[in-house]
Simulated scan of single mutants.
Amino acid sequence: MTFSNLLFLLFTLQSLLVAMASTQPKSDLFREYIGAEFNNVKFSDVPINPNVEFHYILAFAIDYTTSSSASPTDGQFNVFWDTDNLTPSQVSSIKNQHSNVKVALSLGGDSVGDGSCYFTPSSVDSWVSNAVSSLTKIIQQYNLDGIDIDYEHFHADPDTFAECIGKLITTLKNNGVISFASIAPFDDDEVQSHYMALWKSYGHIIDYVNFQFYAYDKGTTVSQFMNYFQTQRSNYGGGDMLASFISDGSGGLSPENGFFTACNRLKSEGKLGGIFVWSADDSKALGFRYEKQSQALLAV
């Protein structure tokens, strides 16, 4: 082989490796929901590995009234997380202490007050206008970096949901209010129909898929989890798919039963977009042992 042929071969190989790397998700992202259960958990309680990208996700901002009989407000969001412990000054403090930390807020959630939290727009234009205005105020007040979409019940069809959420994310990004957005679907026909409609039209502006793998049955095996992950990775093609567990072990593949085995396999296959946890509120009682283990895996 001539020297020029060898150079050409090396250049081709380098180009191939770069192309392969660019199609694989960056797998050092750790994310954790915090503040929904009012367990007095603080940002500073959660161990932070300096070698990962770390996102706290405040749960939740909801477009409902804060009265005892909460009702929908057509996109006018209010804060429903633990504001005694998770304040604007606490956000600034944790970000100043750790350069790898960003903080987001999640929209919606499963419930509000004593009932389910429904996505209830009166129209696309009115909801988007109200949502952009109210969320911009909250995001700027708290010095936040991104949003997460976690509506789980709907009084709107999939196309309306897609247009509302897609236009909200687009506007907030174009206005420089947020730098990233994620969605948090799970394996339910109604939920999937709404999020996959959103993904089809606006997947290109959604940065992460926080798929709730813990919504599968408790006792999920490693092989089942791997199959579920591949199925959802196909459903949300091109997205950075995160693996997930629930701290209280009530569903899905638990850390005790092989979650980290599955994550190591996915990472070795170049498929792991990161790990997220629901939630810091429950992990506090466990001393955040699985948060430490998750971040150690991602930091390698």
Rank of each mutant, 00 (worst) to 15 (best):
3 F>E: 13
14 Q>W: 09
20 M>A: 08
22 S>Q: 11
23 T>G: 02
27 S>N: 10
28 D>C: 03
29 L>D: 00
32 E>N: 08
34 I>R: 02
40 N>G: 04
41 V>N: 04
41 V>C: 07
46 V>R: 09
63 D>Q: 09
67 S>K: 15
78 N>R: 06
80 F>N: 13
81 W>M: 12
83 T>W: 00
88 P>E: 02
88 P>A: 00
90 Q>I: 02
91 V>I: 11
97 Q>G: 06
101 V>T: 07
101 V>E: 01
105 L>M: 04
105 L>F: 07
121 P>W: 10
125 D>M: 07
130 N>E: 06
132 V>C: 06
132 V>T: 11
133 S>V: 04
136 T>R: 03
142 Y>G: 07
142 Y>V: 09
142 Y>M: 10
144 L>F: 01
146 G>M: 08
149 I>P: 07
152 E>C: 08
154 F>G: 15
155 H>N: 15
158 P>H: 14
160 T>N: 13
163 E>V: 10
164 C>W: 14
167 K>C: 05
168 L>E: 14
169 I>E: 04
173 K>T: 09
174 N>A: 06
175 N>T: 03
182 S>P: 03
184 A>E: 03
186 F>W: 13
190 E>G: 15
191 V>H: 13
192 Q>E: 15
193 S>G: 14
203 G>Y: 05
203 G>T: 05
205 I>Y: 03
206 I>N: 10
208 Y>Q: 11
209 V>C: 11
213 F>G: 01
216 Y>G: 04
219 G>N: 10
220 T>S: 08
227 N>Q: 14
227 N>G: 08
232 Q>N: 14
238 G>M: 14
252 G>Q: 11
259 F>H: 05
260 F>W: 03
262 A>W: 07
269 E>V: 02
269 E>P: 00
277 V>S: 11
277 V>L: 14
279 S>Q: 13
280 A>V: 08
286 L>N: 12
290 Y>T: 11
299 A>K: 13
299 A>M: 12
